[in-house]
Design a protein around this nucleic acid. Structure first.
Lengths: 342, 342
DNA sequence: CTTCTCTATGTAAGCGCTTACATAGAGAGG
DNA sequence: CCTCTCTATGTAAGCGCTTACATAGAGAAG
């Protein structure tokens, strides 16, 4: 059996050029669909490419063109439920714009060994999720004008970095107001997110504003750490319950914590929503399937990913972009708040 | 304020060499920790690197060295609950071995535009999840001896590709046997995975073997499509319930489908486990927090990711590897099967 | 039939690294 | 003191592309 290529190495642009009887510049033009190339020539080149199974080496392309056609994504951890839809949005938008995606998670990494895994040397722009990059590195990137877009986090002082997030405050207000108006709750617990988390701060602010609106005094004891984590929320709630704190409802900073809280409540023999009502935030895909189905603030997570990516792509292309995009949230009423057929 | 670099472009190895008063070869040696370099020289180079904020361009490195130090991961979709732990294992193992991770999802992609997003041109090896790569491309990679490891899927005929998966059959048997032995169930429904899915086939086989063992005739009507999807399982179950099919328990091909089934059951007014018992497969993080907590076959998903990555790294280094690794599964009993304090 | 304009293609100079090979000193041994 | 070994460093040749610039024909215009 005759082999198409004489040597055993993967074909290069030169091999293709030779086989097609053209110069490598022409091959490059055909591959990139640029400049004028006569259809016949193009066809010859394409045939040669197919015959040799030619695939352009990304590294050579990048080195020569100074573009990577790759977007970087830095997240603390790809925690399932919440992140999946966002990632889907990012993937889709990046793909449509012709960019690849390099993902890097920073959780559980020893911070000493600072190999620059993602940066200007291997991406055209970076999507940075809340709390996953050092200030110093950010400033460095900012100072060289490298395209960066934040997700769910506004830029630190002095750095002009666009951000895409959701209407946290409004969503939280809607949730808490519903608990107050529709269900007459007055002692509402807030299951907060991680210390310093911006989403959580805004949501707490919305929570407080709703209380204020109905002249319900804010009680710091009712703010319980949930850490946006099922496990930690469950533990917190168990302790809180053991402590004898009284409350009629929970507004959870996110759905994952709500799941943990529900789990703890159930174990303590409390019924939802009869004994304790609960509403979450995010509306993760799973929320509707919980028992009872979780009333929660719907956040357009996939849309956030998509929007941020579009923004980044425009930034990479040096187009003008908005400095902040707030995507709308709305209350999705199911049964955990006491509504419905439950 | 004086700027460290005269030009505004990011520093290259040449700039570092100039500043440190050495040749670029020496800088390269320092950066890669190779060959003998006198400590003083190394220190001078490191100082220069720091001063210039030098970061090696990945593309140049790859082009010159023919190594990418990057592993590719191809998955159909990063569906939350199940995939997160696996990804964590992969990320961790790749990082520890000094590799970056390029992730590519194939779901929802038009198959016509076959840009080779991941391949020998930008990775040293590929981790391929079940059903996410075309046969032809696989054969091409196989023919050039490119390192590939399969996740949850055995290699097609004739291709010598190692696979890492879990003891599906054994796990399924354990689950179904438990339902039969401990709870006296005889009419057990199997909520199957996607058509042709290997995990699902093995699990069904385990299900059948367990039935056989107890002389329970297999009833094809009891195999209901769940598609490993919460939504589709819910829909399927709703239809099945409406059809009046009788059964005492459900063995769900995976936990996500179990969630959907539970949701449908609840809506139909059926109690778990009193009216219908259910056990899942995978033991996703969420399983313990469901109502009632889901009895399920625990699969070491993170370990699968880690093991597969280790295997791939060894393959990349041209070391000998096993052709198939089966990680152990075990039954995690909670309350949805009727056990426990529920 | 020139000369001018285009347009399709070729030429060649890098892009920023790695690495085989060359080379220069410094000791060691005689 | 001269030669022989080493060892630390320098030299330079690519790696496989992109792209500015050069060039060659083919018409169009005079």
């Amino acid at each position: 059996m005759e082999l198409p290529a004489t040597n055993n190495n993967p074909a290069t642009i030169q091999d293709v050029a030779d086989l097609a009887g053209v110069s490598i510049a022409t091959v490059s033009r055909v591959v990139n669909g640029k400049s004028p190339v006569v259809p016949e020539t193009a066809q010859r080149v394409m045939d040669a490419i197919r015959q040799l199974n030619y695939v352009p080496r990304a590294a050579a392309r990048i080195l020569a063109s100074k573009r990577t056609d790759t977007l970087g994504l830095i997240v603390p951890e790809i925690s399932g439920e919440f992140f999946a839809p966002m990632l889907r949005g990012i993937e889709a938008a990046a793909g449509e714009a012709g960019f690849d995606l390099l993902i890097h998670t920073t959780a559980y990494k020893k911070p000493d060994m600072r190999r620059h895994t993602l940066g200007e040397h291997n991406t055209d722009g970076l999507l940075v999720f809340i709390g996953s990059m050092e200030q110093a590195e950010l400033e460095r990137l900012g100072s060289i004008g490298f395209p960066v877009v934040f997700l769910h986090q506004t830029a630190p002082e002095g750095l002009d970095i666009p951000v895409v997030t959701v209407e946290n405050k409004k969503g939280a207000m809607l949730a808490v107001e519903h608990l107050i108006e529709a269900h007459g709750c007055r002692r509402i617990l807030y299951l907060s997110g991680p210390e310093g988390n911006e989403d959580s701060s805004w949501r707490e602010r919305g929570y407080r504003l709703a209380l204020e609106k109905y002249n319900i005094p804010f009680d710091p004891a009712l703010v319980v750490p949930g850490n946006f984590s099922t496990r930690q929320a469950a533990q917190s709630m168990t302790e809180t319950l053991a402590g004898g704190l009284e409350f009629e409802a929970i507004f959870s900073g996110d759905d994952l914590a709500a799941v943990g809280a529900m789990s703890a409540l159930r174990e303590a023999g409390l019924r939802i929503p009869e004994d304790v009502k609960i509403v979450g935030f995010d509306d993760v895909p799973l929320a509707r399937h919980l028992t009872p189905p979780l009333t929660t603030v719907h956040a357009p997570t996939e849309e956030v990913g998509r929007t941020a990516t579009d923004l980044l792509v425009r930034l990479v292309r040096r187009e003008a972009v908005e400095r902040e995009i707030l995507l709308p949230t709305e209350l999705t009423i199911r049964q955990s708040c006491g509504c419905g057929n439950g």
